[in-house]
Design a protein around this nucleic acid. Structure first.
Lengths: 318, 318
DNA sequence: CTGAAAGCGCTAACAG
DNA sequence: CTGTTAGCGCTTTCAG
C-alpha cells in the first residue's frame, strides 16, 4: 500500500506539498505540482479515505433507515435518495431495521462514531424523544412529518391524502369501504388512515380494517378475509396501502368472478407498474421525490419541513 | 466528542486498558474492566469508526455495483445482499454506475483507498481485464459467470436458461418467437440470448430482436413495434427480459384485443408480482439467492463459482 | 495484568 | 511557495 509519504519521497517534496496538490490548494509551484501528479499516476496512488475522514471528521456518507428492504414504498424513497447521491458524490448506506428499536439505535450511533454524516429515516421504530439526542452528532431528516425543530423532513400530508382518497371513494357512491394498512395501530400512518376514515365515514366497522398487508399475497388474503368469511355487509370499495396489495385484492376478486369496479372498486397507492398493468386507480405519493428532497435536506443540514404533493390517478378500477 | 483517552483518564487507567475492554481482550482485571465499562456508559462513549478502520485496515463495508437503481432485477440482487448483511453485521453501500466505465472504476478504487472491504458486481461496464487488477485491494465477486480465477461468482447459467426458455416455447408449438433484452449486443446477457435463440430456432430475423427494454413502458412500446409496424410475419410468442416488460407487452396486446396466449404467448422473467397479477409464465432466476450467495462469497473472500438454479413457472400466458 | 509509546495515513497550522 | 511538526482516535507491540 503506497501512501502519501512514499509519494513525497519519490517526488522529492514534502508530504504537505503532496497533500496540497491532492486537495487542489493554490500556492504550489507548477513544477512541483506536475512532478507530484506524475508520481501519483505512476504509483497508481489513491489517498486512504479512512485517514482523510478521520482528520476531516466527515465521511460524505449518508445512511437510509428502512424497516424492510423489500417493500416497494421504502424502495422508492431509497431510489430517490440514491438518484441524488450519485450527482452529489455522496455514498448511501442501506440500514434495514425490521422495526427493531435496538437495531435502529445502533444505526443512529453511527452518527456518533463518525461513520455517517447524516441519516434519513423513512420510517422509525423509536420515539422522537429517543432519536433527537442523536441530532447532536449529525443531520437527521425524516420522511414523515414532524414538528420537532431538530429534525428536517420531506413529507407527504398523509392525513389529507387519506381523507381525499376516502372522500373520492365516497363521492363515487361508495359507503361501504374497507382498507388495508401495513402495520397496526403502532404505526402513525395507520392511525392517520383510521382517523381519516372516521372523518369521512363516521364510524369504522372493525371488519373493514385489515392490517399487516405488505405484498401481493397479503392483498389476496385480505380479499379472502373480506369476502370469504363472515363479514356482515360486504364492502363495495377498498383502499389498499400500495398497488401490489391492490393487485392481490384484484386477483382475488377476479378469481371469484367479481367485476371491477362494479362489484368492487379498488384504489391503490404509489402508482406502480402492477397498477398500470391492472389499470388500477392509485394515489401517487411521489415517494421518489420524497427521497430526493430528504437527501437534499440531509446534505444541507437543513431542518426545514418540505411537503411533497400527492395526486390521485384515475383509472378504470373505480 | 469524548475519545478513548478521556475515558482512560476518567477511569484512571491507560488507553490500552480501555482498548482492551473495548475489544474484549482477556488479561484485564475484573475491577478495571468494571470501572472502564461504567465510565464508557456514563460518558455515552462510542469508538470512532474511522480511527478503528484506519488502524485495522478494514471497514466491514461492502459495495454493490448496480447499473441502475430502479431496475427490478438489480434490486432483487441488492435485496439478497442486504438480507445477509444484516445478520453478519456488515454495511452495504449502493454504487450506481449507469454503465459508465469511469464511474465504475471510481467505485472500484474505493477498494484501493480502503473504504470498502469488498465489491459485488451485479453487472459491469468495464472488461474483466481492467477490473482484475483491483482484486489486489479487496475481494471482488461477480453475479455473472466468469472463469477468471481472481473473481468469485454466484451466477445463473444464463445460456442454458435461455435455451430452455426458447425450447419450451418451441415445444409449445411456437416457431415465430420474438424477444426483448435490456441492453444491446455490448451486453453478454444479450449475446447469450441471441446465441440461445439461434441454437433453438436456427436463424434470427432482425425484427424479432428488441433491445433497450427495461420497464413496463418499454414492453408496451415493444408490442407496438412488433404489431403496429411493418413486421412481415407476426410472432406468436415473445420472451421478455423481465416480468415488468412482459406486463407492458401484455397490456399492449390486450389493448389490441389480442387473446393471451392464443394470439400471443408471453414468457417473462424473475417471477415478480406483476407477473403473478397478470398470470404470466416466468422463468425465475432466483436473483435474491444470487445476491445472498454473492454476499457470502465476498465476506469469505472466496473465489468459488456457485451456480444458482433457475426454474420455469408455468402460468396461463403460454 | 498494565502502561508507554509507536504508529495507521493524512491534514493543517506554523515558521520560514 | 515549501517543509516541519503536531495531531485525528485508536490498536498493538514491548517492557515491565
Amino acid at each position: 500500500m503506497t501512501n502519501i509519504s512514499d509519494i513525497a519521497r519519490i517526488a522529492g517534496v514534502s508530504v504537505s506539498t503532496v497533500s496540497r496538490v491532492l486537495n487542489n490548494h493554490k500556492y504550489v509551484s507548477e513544477d512541483k505540482r506536475k512532478i507530484v501528479q506524475k508520481v501519483i499516476k505512476e504509483m497508481n496512488y489513491t489517498p486512504n479515505k479512512n485517514a482523510v475522514d478521520l482528520i476531516r471528521g466527515e465521511t460524505k456518507m449518508i445512511g437510509v433507515i428502512i424497516p424492510y428492504n423489500n417493500n416497494q414504498a421504502f424502495d422508492q424513497m431509497l431510489h430517490g435518495v440514491i438518484n441524488k447521491s450519485v450527482e452529489k458524490d455522496y455514498s448511501i448506506t442501506v440500514l434495514a431495521t425490521k422495526y427493531s428499536k435496538e437495531k435502529e439505535l445502533e444505526y443512529l450511533s453511527m452518527l456518533k462514531n463518525k461513520w455517517l454524516d447524516g441519516i434519513i429515516i423513512t420510517s422509525r421504530a423509536n420515539s422522537w424523544e429517543t432519536i433527537i439526542p442523536y441530532t447532536e452528532y449529525g443531520s437527521i431528516v425524516s420522511c414523515e412529518y414532524t414538528t420537532h425543530s431538530e429534525i428536517g423532513c420531506a413529507y407527504i400530508d398523509r392525513f389529507s391524502s387519506y381523507v381525499d382518497a376516502f372522500q373520492y371513494l365516497k363521492d363515487k357512491g361508495h359507503e361501504k369501504v374497507a382498507f388495508t394498512t401495513a402495520r397496526g395501530t403502532e404505526s402513525i400512518s395507520t392511525e392517520q388512515t383510521i382517523a381519516a376514515y372516521k372523518r369521512v365515514f363516521g364510524g369504522l366497522p372493525d371488519e373493514y380494517y385489515l392490517p399487516n398487508c405488505f405484498r401481493f399475497e397479503d392483498g389476496y388474503y385480505a380479499g379472502e378475509q373480506l369476502f370469504g368469511r363472515a363479514v356482515k355487509t360486504k364492502p363495495t370499495a377498498i383502499y389498499a396501502n400500495g398497488d401490489e396489495v391492490a393487485g392481490g385484492i384484484y386477483k382475488y376478486a377476479r378469481s371469484k368472478n367479481m367485476n371491477i369496479p362494479n362489484d368492487l372498486a379498488i384504489l391503490g397507492q404509489e402508482n406502480q407498474p402492477i397498477g398500470v398493468a391492472l389499470d388500477l386507480s392509485s394515489v401517487d405519493h411521489q415517494l421518489i421525490k420524497v427521497g430526493e428532497q430528504a437527501f437534499e435536506l440531509t446534505v444541507q443540514k437543513s431542518r426545514r419541513n418540505i411537503e411533497i404533493p400527492y395526486k390521485i390517478i384515475e383509472r378504470s378500477s373505480i
